[in-house]
């Protein structure tokens, strides 16, 4: 059964939870603020995201998450050298990460019930 949430950003997260991209971005940004380049490399190394981390997909999602108020971005500049747009989690972003954990837990529970039933019927 599909649940409709009041907040559009939660609906978006719930609809795309299987791909694990938004939870993964929220997870890494909760640990440390990062720029897109670094996030792409981290996602590629992580073994829990179903989406191929191509730059177009990642930057589009980051922009959407910023529009939804889950993250904020600012240019990370020193006095000299290169500057990159850096992303940081907001309090709504932390709440969204907790929401993702809840959704994933529910899914894991259901999958475990399925596996148990399958196992017991096979005996």
């Amino acid at each position: 059964m599909r649940i409709d949430y009041k907040e559009p950003n939660l609906n978006y997260i719930a609809a795309n939870i299987d791909k694990m991209l938004v939870p993964t971005l929220l997870f890494f940004l909760a640990k440390k603020h990062s720029h897109g380049y670094e996030l792409i490399q981290k996602i590629n190394e992580a073994d829990f995201c179903e989406v191929e981390a191509d730059p177009a997909t990642i930057y589009r999602n980051l922009r959407r998450m910023e529009e939804d108020g889950l993250i904020i971005s600012k240019w990370e500049t020193g006095l000299t050298g290169p500057a990159r747009r850096c992303y940081e989690l907001t309090s709504s972003g932390h709440e969204a990460l907790n929401f993702c954990v809840e959704l994933i837990n529910n899914k894991v529970e259901k999958m475990q019930i399925f596996l148990q039933k399958h196992q017991s019927s096979a005996i």
């Binding site: 930057y59 240019w75 500049t77 006095l79 000299t80 290169p82 500057a83």
Partner: peptide
């Protein structure tokens, strides 16, 4: 260009 002609640069697209 660094550092004589430019102090800092912004990486803005891919």
């Amino acid at each position: 260009l660094m550092p004589q002609y430019v102090n800092k640069y912004y990486i803005f697209a891919n």
